[in-house]
Nucleic acid binder design. Structure first.
Length: 423
DNA sequence: TCTGGGGTCCTAGGACCC
DNA sequence: TCTGGGGTCCTAGGACCC
């Protein structure tokens, strides 16, 4: 049996934990650059004029009219709260698969001394007690069914109190008949539409389709979902995250940029971020992609976008080597006279450090012997991000950085921003 | 003025090998 | 008249997730 534990409106409730004055009031969290709404608590969801993913400038009036408190996203805080939740879960089972920042699958097969329903309540209560975050718990024989059980745990709250177990055939059928096919994990908008066209509206009706039809129209991915809904485990339980296959970052600028120098600095900054991730997982990258584009939404601006992928002379995780490669790549695709909105970098061909093959005609890479990069990382770990950085990143970060006007304090990671209980 | 960011998995088709 | 059969590797694009 597998439990799916999922935090309710995670980002919004993280903000509320530190702002008891906002309990019971509508709260939303905005995307990077304060562009659109990416999370809303149930009070905010209840206000129908606030659709998710709507650009903020279009609904700002409604937010204010309805007394909605909004926050810029504060990933440092959410990431740290997430770790606390995952740590608590790891005490409940040796097998935990962290699926995303706010949810995890927990193997509860071994639980014999009490009912799964009580065990679910224990997880839920302890997480709330230790972190202040409300969660929902769904327990079932497969991952897809556990996801569905979780959804049911959150509906009809008074009845289920945030925990729902599918442990009998009767409950499974009832759950399937209750669920709109679109709410099934893995069935998105495109497939749901196609299914509705052939008269399949519920998860139950979906399981009644012949396997051949599912395979033909939804590939083996669809077949796995189909089997899982029938109670046949078909999606692996992964406790060890596999090393990433690609590491990239791309963010819109706080304002549009024309100047190559400034774009280079942003690009170098992103390279510093991704190469640090690379070093943390003890890997090196073989390819580097750099892309650049103007604002697609603008009717007035001339549009241009381009991308380039370079093969590195030797796979590397060296920030400085990567920055100079990225600079060359950017020079090759940059065209003056456009107002750029975004630059991005992506590392791929990621291999473990010990498999890197040297180049006969080049000196051994720096990361392979020198202490420079490990010292660099150690300093930034101890004293905070960007305490030391490459000179090519420059010091004009504020001029292109994304906008975060309403970010809450980093309550859990900065001494200077601790929550003040009384002044 | 203003529209997110980071991922995974699968398939088809092209180019190539013997 | 008539042109095989078995592979690999790579990329782009689609669909989905949070």
């Amino acid at each position: 049996m597998i439990a799916l534990v999922d935090c309710n409106s995670f980002y919004a409730t993280c903000e509320q934990v530190f702002r008891p004055d906002l309990w019971g009031k509508p709260v939303v969290v905005l995307s990077n650059n304060d562009g659109c709404v990416i999370a809303a608590n149930k009070e905010a969801k209840a206000i129908s004029e606030i659709p998710m993913f709507e650009p903020v400038f279009k609904i700002k009036k409604q937010l204010i009219q309805n007394n909605v408190t909004f926050f810029s996203s504060n990933y440092t805080l959410y990431g740290e709260m997430s770790q606390r939740v995952m740590n608590i879960l790891s005490a409940f089972s040796p097998q935990v698969e962290i699926y995303s920042i706010d949810e995890a699958f927990v193997d509860v097969s071994g639980i014999k001394h009490l009912s799964l329903n009580s065990y679910g309540h224990q997880m839920k209560d302890r997480i709330f007690q230790y972190t202040g975050l409300p969660v929902g718990v769904g327990i079932a024989p497969t991952k897809v069914l556990a996801k569905l059980a979780n959804k049911i745990s959150k509906k009809r709250v008074s009845e289920n109190k945030g925990v729902f177990v599918i442990d009998t055939e009767k409950k499974r059928i009832e759950a399937l008949q209750w669920a709109d096919v679109k709410t099934v994990w893995g069935i998105g908008g495109k497939h749901a539409k196609r299914l509705k066209n052939i008269g399949v509206f519920t998860a139950y009706e979906f399981t009644m389709l012949p396997e051949e039809w599912v395979r033909k129209n939804m590939t083996v991915v669809g077949v796995r979902i189909w089997k899982e809904l029938k109670g046949i485990p078909s999606i692996e339980f992964k406790t060890m995250p596999k090393p990433k296959q690609g590491i990239g970052t791309a963010k819109s600028f706080g304002k549009k940029l024309e100047d190559l120098g400034m774009i280079q600095e942003a690009c170098s900054y992103y390279i510093s971020e991704v190469s640090e991730v690379l070093r943390n997982q003890k890997s090196c990258a073989t390819y580097l992609q750099v892309f650049l584009h103007t604002n697609y939404f603008s009717d007035r601006d001339k549009q241009y976008s381009n991308s380039i992928t370079v093969t590195l002379p030797i796979p590397t995780c060296d920030t400085f080597a990567l920055i100079s490669e990225a600079k060359k790549a950017l020079d090759a695709i940059y065209k003056p006279g456009y107002r750029y909105k975004k630059v991005g970098v992506c590392l791929s061909g990621i291999i473990p450090r010990e498999y890197v093959q040297g180049n006969l005609f080049l000196p051994p890479p720096r990361w392979n012997k020198g202490e420079l990069l490990s010292t660099f990382d150690a300093i930034n770990r101890k004293y905070g991000k960007s305490t030391v950085f490459s000179g090519l990143v420059g010091t004009r970060v504020k001029e292109w950085e994304l906008i975060k006007e309403d970010r809450s304090p980093r309550y859990t990671t900065q001494w200077g921003e601790l929550l003040r209980v009384r002044s």
